[in-house]
Nucleic acid binder design. Sequence first.
DNA 1: CTAGGGGTAAAT
DNA 2: ATTTACCCCTAG
Length: 301
Amino acid sequence: MGAPKQKWTSEEEAALKAGVLKHGAGKWRTILKDPEFSSVLYLRSNVDLKDKWRNMSVMANGWGSREKARLALKRVQHVPKDDNPLAVAIADPSDEDSGDVRPIQSSSGSPQVGGSKRSMIRLDNLIMEAINNLKEHGGSNKTTIGTYIEEQYWAPPNFKRLLSMKLKFLTANGKLVKTKRKYRIASANASSSDKKRVPSMLRLEGRQKVSSPKVDKDEIIVPTKAQIDLELQKMRSMTPQEAAAAAAQAVAEAEAAIAEAEEAAREAEAAEADAEAAQAFAEAAMKTLKGRNTQRLMIRA
DNA sequence: CTAGGGGTAAAT
DNA sequence: ATTTACCCCTAG
């Protein structure tokens, strides 16, 4: 990608996004003075925030404000060998979730600025696991897969939509094969179009579609409902106001990331980046909250 | 102070 | 050649 001089860290980006969510775009000074973010953004000026937001908007949104000619003069050099009906419905104000708490799960291990990485939930993995464990002949349909995942894990409110999107995506990519409304895991090959890096859905090295399906979720880092509840209780034991603020931030950020992910359904990579930013922010928020308290809402023993 | 329009240097 | 952090300037 680009080229950093002094690249913005994910924490900073996350803080900026959160700040915009909280105070609105354009209240750079306000965001900067907010103790919530000043700890992260103290190096940046209000103009930096504005410029960064401008640059970020260029990426996320096609037409932020500054690249009128940028993409306009750019030719859409696309080579669709396969016409995939991957139309993304953006103008879709239908679904709206009601306020429900959705904490972000964080990674464990090294929670420190600049280094926090990886270990997000991979819906892909869950789908694969569901299909594997369901062991239905001819594959499983969307509802079954969805139910399986919902029962086994904690699913967000808009999970259905995400699942549909993901199934479509995986099918288009050849990772799944769809026959008669049923999905099964593609035998071997995968990638179709341009550069494709193999997604690591192989934590369980040995068996993948083999038939040794015990519910062995050793490495998978998905929180169960019980664990989520536990975390929520932890938060409640904090100062109510602080906890509320933290939760609000985390939720807002997570929802923003998910919304962006939906918009950019075809670019899973971009979506991942945003999700990562959200995660990074969640950590940062918690840290800022209690200067010292190494509070972690992480799962995993 | 903010929104923008410009522009530069640097990294990919 | 493009991206991007950062800078400068001007009009509100």
